[in-house]
Design a binder for these strands. Sequence first.
RNA 1: GGAGAGAUGGCAGAGCGGUCGAUUGCGGCAGUCUUGAAAACUGUUGACUGUAAUAGGUCCGGGGGUUCGAAUCCCUCUCUCUCCGCCA
Length: 423
Amino acid sequence: MLPIQLFRQEKELVLAGLKKKNFKEIELVDKIVLLDEQRRALQVENDKLAAVLNTAAKNIGIHMSKGEKQEADTLKEMVTLHKEQAKDIAQRLSAMETEAQDMIIRLPNLPHSSVPFGKTPEENEIVRAGGTMPELGAHNMPHWELAVKYGLIDFELGNKITGSGFPVFMGQGSKLQRALIQYFLNFNIDAGFKEYSPAFMVNEASAYGTGQLPDKEGQMYHVTEDNLFLIPTAEVPVTNIYRDTITPEQELPIKMTAYSPCFRREAGSYGKDVRGLNRVHQFDKVEIVQIAHPAKSYEMLEEMVVHVEKLLQSLELPYRILRLCGGDMSFTSSLTYDFEVYSAAQERWLEVSSVSNFENFQANRMKIRFRDGNGKTQMAHTLNGSSLALPRIMACLLENNQKAEGIHIPFALQAYFGKNMIN
RNA sequence: GGAGAGAUGGCAGAGCGGUCGAUUGCGGCAGUCUUGAAAACUGUUGACUGUAAUAGGUCCGGGGGUUCGAAUCCCUCUCUCUCCGCCA
């Protein structure tokens, strides 16, 4: 949620940002500014009346204690006279607040100045690429065939037990999964991130805080009986650790990491994009989250990008880093880098990580603040990224490393997996 | 799931219809003393909103009600604790 002060002070900036983000309902901005002015005027009126009534109530108390019943009754009459008016103003005020809130909540975050203009994924900017493209023989297989060949994943079994998009891992597939999680977590911990094991369900307030509600409600699994949501990413519970807190400035940045399964309904997906592990309803991911000082957040973002890049390099996978254009960025983000790895058998790039700076967009909703050197509270910036999402990493590992004798395990993973080959 | 108790400022904990945004202790900050630190002593210390600046307004778990006036009374929701039940 954008802070209201921004509309008062930097309206042009807001308009330009929304345009870059390819946001359609630009007219909302003027409505918000106007409503805010009206609201404040009414607020002053409300406060003045409240002041009069407060004083009167206080004086009644004093008169009563002195036994001056006459004076007290006169004041009571006066207050009663104004009561309806006060109630009316309060009601109008609250209606205006709700209306303004409903409009502001519909506006996406503003993009950073480095975000490229554009509307479609084709207009994303390739920042850099790394790793070497594998050369596979003509008889190469996509991961869903390799998974069957080596008995790693059973998609059919998942259909039977739960439904499509809930694959069952087994044997060496399970072990590789576990090895990846362990490796990613340790890699993050070594870089100074504190590990958390959060709950995999969150309440409404948390889902609202990170921006899943009200917008993306349909993307989450909802346990209606208890009104809880299965988390679509560990970002939700982990960022919410700091909801409604004021942190001393010197404790920033706060760096957190967590493993969690992620649950996504992925309503509306279909076709070859969703084949095998490309898109599933439940998958594992290790997430990193930071609460940062506003002056340092972009520095931290670059640091996170380098961190994830090193992780991909250690897995010996060909990758590229994209800076997303305004139209392809998420609702809540100011700047997002996507990481893609090359799936050799499918001959396409698969997104495995998304690293973003949300500036104070989430912090404003969640009231994540810090106390600066002058003792004033300020909104912090929040950032997060995947390091990493497992399914597509596994897909690429299987496909890119397939040999006649088995599937090669990259060196960094061997200690965790226990051997250097799946066969 | 049943019965009972509770939710107050960073923490602990008073207040139970009027001058309470809230006694006190701890913690934090500043100072005195000290070469420095500790101890002791003194002072200070909530958030939000709002104004040109003062002022004003709101907040005692959330929401609603009674009253001239609510942290205090009533209703409701959420959460916590104790006991019982169930159970990995």
